[in-house]
């Protein structure tokens, strides 16, 4: 039994989601017999952590600040072991542009894409290069803020005239946007446990009902998405998905449990979209569903995450 501080909330746009994740984590830790100290990641966080003197911190934050290496750096300085990935791995995973480059370097299949910063448009006339990008990626294409979770700011461009608006929308969430080839297919997620000998939980398919894709509302409204363990996939595909997911998490040097989002296209090829270093733990999230399908239960996943808590240095 340990003294565990659960960091949740925080100032990011995913504050509400984080509070929901945090509640589930706190309850699980309680059932596991730990002493739980819930903390909001606000302006008093460092002081509160010093006062609370936890043996380990469970980071249940999502998005900017909590998932991008910021909180991790603070915990490194305070020398309190924490769950999930370290500073650099968090930064790499949070930035879809950086992780895409690393995936390509490691021969991990990922859709082709281009990224532009705000400055590229405002100071270097990058808008004039948009036709070439559209030409190269084809339509539809996907526009995403480089660093933002929960699919906020993501849109699928289907008409040539919509690219500018999609970029403007994504820029509302980050100063850098990724334009990515849209790969139609099934949306899969594999949660990987990055122990000494990494292993994967069963893959889960997200089937958004009545939504264009697995967007914010589909993610967090019960009943708007069906999460299921696909029965029609052959064992080889499931094995491949697990292997490529572990490879992706390894490439970014993730720790703890990470969730890898993939697309299985119509030809049966797998594409890695991104790695989440702090997977959602809400009632409608993929990792809890994977734990349920695996038959190990949510509490065991929380216990594993705690077990793998560490410091970079």
């Amino acid at each position: 039994m340990s003294r565990v501080a659960v960091l949740r909330g925080g100032p990011s746009l995913e504050r509400e989601v984080s509070l929901r994740s945090g509640t589930n984590v706190e309850l699980a830790l309680g059932r596991l017999g730990h002493e739980v100290i819930p903390l909001d990641a606000d302006a008093h966080m460092v002081r509160a952590l010093r006062e609370a003197r936890p043996e380990v911190v469970f980071v249940a934050l999502h998005g900017r600040g909590g998932e991008d290496g910021t909180v991790q750096e603070i915990l490194e300085i305070l020398k309190i072991p924490y769950t999930g990935s370290g500073v650099l791995a968090s930064e790499r995973a949070m930035d879809k542009v950086v992780s895409k480059a690393l995936f390509r370097g490691a021969d991990i299949p990922t859709p082709h894409g281009y990224a532009f910063s705000k400055e590229a448009f405002s100071k270097m006339g990058a808008a004039d290069a948009l036709p070439e990008i559209q030409q190269s990626l084809g339509l539809p294409l996907c526009v995403k803020p480089a660093r933002q979770g929960s699919a906020l700011g993501i849109s699928i461009v289907r008409e040539p005239g919509d690219l500018g608006g999609a970029i403007l929308n994504a820029m509302g969430f980050d100063d850098r946007v990724l334009m990515e080839r849209f790969v139609p297919g099934r949306e899969l997620a594999v949660s990987v446990v990055m122990a000494n000998d990494p292993w994967a939980l069963p893959l889960i398919e997200a089937v958004p009902l009545g939504h264009d894709f697995y967007d914010f509302e589909a993610r967090y409204t019960p009943g708007e998405t069906e999460l299921r363990a696909p029965r029609d996939l052959d064992e080889a595909t499931a094995q491949d998905a697990a292997a490529v997911s572990i490879a992706a998490a390894r490439t970014l040097e993730c720790r703890g449990i990470a969730r890898v989002d993939l697309i299985l296209d119509d030809e049966g090829r797998l594409w890695v979209l991104e790695v989440n270093t702090i997977p959602g733990m809400t009632d409608t999230s993929l990792l809890p569903k994977a734990a349920e399908v695996a038959g190990i239960g949510f509490d065991r996943v929380v216990a594993d995450m705690l077990e793998l808590a560490a410091l970079d240095t």
Binding site: L27, R31, G223, A291, F298
Partner: peptide, 16 residues
């Protein structure tokens, strides 16, 4: 400490 975990959400969903 409630014994209800994320997997139990479906219990309520089907009843809402």
């Amino acid at each position: 400490t409630p014994l209800v975990g994320p997997a139990d959400a479906a219990r309520y969903e089907s009843r809402f």
